[in-house]
Structure formats: C-alpha cells, structure tokens
Simulated scan of single mutants.
Amino acid sequence: MAESILRIRRATGSDIPRLLDLYQHLIPGDDRPDDASASEAFARFLLYPGSAIFLGELHGVLVASCALAVVPNLTRGAKPFGIIENVVTHSDYRQHGYGRQILDAASGAAWSEGCYKVMLLTGSKEPATLNFYLRAGFEQSKTGFQKRRIPVRSEN
C-alpha cells in the first residue's frame, strides 16, 4: 500500500457511523451504541471547549482517530490539560505513521487551547504499542491508576 497524505479534521455528527466502525479496530466486538445514544454522547463531548475527536482520512476511508478532552484546571496558573483517549488506527493501515499524525494533531490542538500537558493511558503491555507512544513523543513518566465498572479488555 503506497504512503499517502492523511487528511486530518475534527469529527462532526455525520461521521459517527464510520467512527463507530473504526472503533471495532480498537475493541473488536465492543457493544456498538445505537445512533441516538452515540449522537447524544458526541454532543455532550463537544460541550467541553477545545475538545474534539480527530479523524484521519485517506482517499475517503477513515483510517485513524483519537479523542482529545480539554479539562479546565486550577493549578499551573489555571492552564487546562488534555486527555487523549480512544487512539485507533484501522488494522489495514497500521505501520504507516497515521497514528502518530493523529496524535500530533490532537497534541497541537491542546497546545493551541493553552494546555500545559496532554496525557494518555494504555492498557496494553505490548512492546510495539508502548514504543509507538514513545516514538510519538509521549514519555512514560507517571504511574496510572484506574477504578473500573466495565472489565478491562483483553489484549489483541
């Protein structure tokens, strides 16, 4: 597959069905919300100023995505921070730099919003996944904890 220029943009409501299809490459077999629930969740997400779901398209095919939530903050001079979640590249398009490009777009948007940092968590222990995040400019410098209602997904 020839390398091509990824077109990166912010998602709109009309992108939801294709985005939900792409998420199957993140969590295969994950419960897919109905259209009304997905649209409602997307609208609530956009209520947070600066937050966006970034999409990477190649010849009209949605190949990569991540979500950026910009969180107001009372430390660091009241500078917000960003949380990146749901990082996914379509399995047919991996190893071409598209995931890194989508993370760079989200990080750039966070900087434009005045965020002092962006952070993400991964449940993966796969060296390839961890090295991907390191190559994308993230450092493994904090210890993460979580409390879950939904069980952790298994490694694929």
Rank of each mutant, 00 (worst) to 15 (best):
S51M: 01
A41S: 11
V61N: 11
T122F: 13
V88A: 15
S65M: 03
G13H: 08
A69R: 07
R76W: 03
K147P: 00
M119A: 08
S51Q: 01
Q95L: 06
A36N: 11
R10S: 13
Q146W: 02
F45M: 15
I102L: 10
L130F: 15
I83F: 01
N86F: 02
F132R: 10
R7N: 12
Y116E: 11
S37D: 15
I5T: 12
H59N: 15
G108L: 03
K142Y: 04
S4E: 11
H25L: 05
R10T: 10
L19R: 12
S112R: 08
N73R: 08
R32H: 04
S39Q: 13
S37Q: 14
V61C: 07
Q95G: 06
L121S: 14
F132L: 14
E57M: 02
T89Q: 13
E85I: 02
T12E: 07
A78Y: 03
L6T: 06
N73V: 00
K142D: 04
F45N: 01
P72C: 01
F42E: 08
L68S: 01
G144A: 13
A43W: 03
A36W: 05
F42N: 13
A38R: 07
K125S: 14
T12C: 13
I8F: 08
V118C: 08
I27F: 10
L62Y: 04
S14T: 15
E3Y: 10
L47W: 00
R44M: 06
H90D: 14
Q95K: 11
S124G: 14
L134F: 05
I53P: 00
C115K: 09
K125I: 13
E85W: 03
V63M: 04
F138T: 05
S91E: 15
G56L: 02
G108H: 10
A106W: 06
I150Y: 02
A105Y: 07
E57S: 02
A78I: 00
G137L: 09
G144H: 02
G13T: 12
A106S: 09
A2Y: 03
G99E: 09
Y93G: 00
D35T: 10
A64H: 06
S65P: 08
N73P: 02
Y93M: 03
H96K: 12
S154L: 11
R100D: 03
Q140I: 05
G99H: 13
A106Y: 07
F42K: 13
A43M: 04
L47A: 07
G114A: 05
I83H: 06
H25I: 09
R135S: 15
N156M: 05
L134S: 14
T89Y: 12
A110M: 03
L6I: 15
A69Y: 01
Q146A: 09
G99Q: 12
V152C: 01
L74D: 01
K125G: 10
I8A: 04
K117I: 07
G56C: 04
V152R: 15
H25S: 12
V63K: 02
N86Y: 03
S39L: 10
R153E: 10
K142A: 14
E155V: 10
H59E: 15
A38H: 10
G29Q: 06
